[in-house]
Computed example of a mutant assay.
Amino acid sequence: MLVIKLNAIDSTNDYLKQLNKEKTLSDYTVVTTFSQTKGKGQMGSNWISEPGKNLTFSVLVKDSVTLQSSIFDCNVAVAVSVLEVLQSLKIPNLNIKWPNDILAESKKIGGILIENSIKADGMIDTVIGIGLNINQEDFSGLPSASSLKNIVEKDFDLEFLLEKIVNQLKSNLNKLPLRKEFFWEKYKSHLFKINQPMAFEDLNQNRFMGIITGVSSDGKLELVLEDDSCQTFGLKEIRMLY
């Protein structure tokens, strides 16, 4: 496993995507940084991380996804991989907030951003960006955020965690074709607020109530609305209020 360590970079995902265009990289090449200045989250949101306290890294996975219909299967397996590593560390009350935020005790401790590039031969190169709050303690102005240290009151070895997560990713993605149902079941069983009434907001800032019943195969959130109708929503269509 090639690990490229950078002192500072705007985005490990962008750096790894550009590097993959310029040269032939081995599968599971990792780019990690001490300080990420413009980390990206879902829908273009920023990922703010205190330098040297957290994990901010990207992993190149080559040809793991071959069909458009299976792209969200990869998302599911990645989220479950991170969840499983945190479970092994005895982090309590873990959930996955749709589509790929990692929560502990209802606080956000991590985020995942997966970007795919389709090659001329139809195969897909995948860059998996992961940000995890590890040893950071100050989250002033971020009441919904926390870290492993704040939750279990101990420090963690960043390099050990990086290796553990990448190894779990590799193991699970290799198993994905045969264990897809298992990963989906684990993803859904840890889905934040599943089967509970929740408030949502649409693009027009209209608020409404719904009950999360699951996630569709293409990654849309499945809701039962107040009129008992069932609808699905894409990532850019609604926002969960909690």
Rank of each mutant, 00 (worst) to 15 (best):
I109D: 10
I118C: 07
I118P: 00
A79E: 08
P99M: 11
V61M: 13
L103H: 05
E84N: 15
T66C: 12
I102K: 01
V76T: 11
V80M: 09
A79N: 00
K108Y: 11
M123A: 12
I91P: 01
N93F: 10
K90E: 15
N95F: 15
A77G: 00
K108C: 06
K90D: 15
N75D: 08
V85T: 14
K62F: 02
N100P: 09
L113I: 04
L67Y: 14
S69N: 10
T126N: 10
N116P: 01
N95W: 13
I109A: 09
I96N: 05
N93I: 00
D101F: 07
E115R: 12
C74T: 07
S88F: 09
S69T: 14
S88L: 06
T126M: 04
T66H: 14
V85E: 08
V59M: 04
L103N: 03
L83W: 06
K97Y: 12
K107N: 09
M123P: 00
W98K: 06
L67Q: 13
F72L: 01
L60R: 08
T66S: 14
E115F: 07
N95L: 12
D121Q: 03
V65N: 02
K108I: 07
G110P: 05
N93V: 02
S58L: 05
K107A: 04
A120Y: 13
W98N: 01
T126Y: 04
A104Q: 01
A120M: 12
S117W: 07
M123F: 14
E105D: 13
S117A: 14
D63E: 15
F72N: 00
N93Q: 12
A77T: 10
L113E: 02
N95E: 13
D63I: 09
K62I: 11
V76Q: 01
V61C: 13
D73V: 05
D101P: 02
I109G: 05
V59L: 07
Q87G: 08
I71N: 03
G110R: 13
V82Q: 07
G122M: 09
K97S: 11
S70Q: 15
T126G: 02
Q87F: 06
L86N: 06
E84F: 10
G111R: 03
V65H: 07
L67S: 10
V80H: 11
N95M: 09
Q68C: 05
C74F: 15
D125P: 00
N75G: 08
P99C: 08
L86F: 14
M123V: 11
M123Y: 14
